[in-house]
């Protein structure tokens, strides 16, 4: 396990260094996030969104920003011909964990950009920042977990970009619906109402199941 963690850290550092130099994923995510929040702000400002509508809009923006950039770590390996080198360099478990950690970092960056911008552009009042941070963390883990294994599968396909968007929808829709439900208290719904708390627990369970399944499935996906 120590070797796997070490290998994952090396893969993560390699991806971070490449991203720092090229800024492919970050540029795409930043452009999409700023443009979509600004557009939503322009259209919806003053529309008096209720809590669920506000949560739905913000998670929709996060989802599409994630779909824009999170497939890159694997697709880039396939498109640039480095996949075989990576397969020789690191064991599959280390590759999955390193890529997952990198996606988690990108996802955190998306949320750190989108949530404050969303609040500022749409004038949405965040009443429970702590609760929102917990939901955002659960969302980051579930969405990056799902996109990591999907991106690994999609990297093997032709027409990768379009396949990713299509494949991501059914996998990411359940946690997104739950995240919208769970985000309610951040924008005013009582946490004691029951459903948001259950929704947050469901997202965390979904993430746990997905991560365990990915851990076991990934070697088969990666090595073929």
């Amino acid at each position: 396990m120590k070797g796997t963690l070490r290998g994952a850290w090396i893969v993560f550092l390699k991806d971070a260094r490449s991203e720092f130099r090229t800024r492919y994923a970050l540029s795409a995510i930043l452009l999409f996030a700023v443009a979509s929040v600004a557009l939503a702000g322009f259209v919806l400002r003053g529309a008096m969104l209720d809590e669920r509508q506000a949560a739905a809009v913000v998670w929709l923006i996060v989802f599409f920003a994630a779909a824009t950039g999170l497939a890159r770590p694997f697709v880039q390996e396939a498109e640039s011909g480095t996949e075989l080198l990576l397969r020789q360099a690191a064991r599959p478990e280390a590759v999955w964990l390193g890529k997952f950690a990198f996606s988690l970092g990108l996802m955190a960056a998306i949320e750190l950009i989108v949530f404050p911008l969303f609040g500022a552009f749409l004038g949405v009042d965040v009443r429970r920042p702590g609760w929102l941070a917990a939901v955002a963390a659960a969302g980051a883990v579930s969405l990056s977990g799902a996109t990591t294994i999907l991106a690994a599968m999609v990297a093997k396909a032709r027409a990768r970009s379009s396949v990713f968007a299509v494949a991501a929808l059914p996998v990411l829709l359940p946690p997104l619906v739950l995240l919208v439900e769970a985000s309610g208290p951040a924008f005013g719904v009582s946490v004691g109402a029951g459903q948001p708390r259950e929704a947050l627990l469901a997202v965390m369970s979904y993430s746990g199941i997905l991560i365990v399944l990915s851990w076991f499935l990934f070697p088969g996906v990666w090595e073929e």
Binding site: G3, V11, K14
Partner: peptide, 27 residues
């Protein structure tokens, strides 16, 4: 270890960084 035309090094890394990455990742 395999060297093949289909295997590309990481183009945005330097030669030394590619070698260090491979060495560190393999333990």
């Amino acid at each position: 270890a395999l060297a093949a035309p289909a295997i590309q090094p990481y183009l945005h890394l330097t030669l030394a960084e590619n070698l260090r990455f491979l060495g560190a990742a393999r333990g």
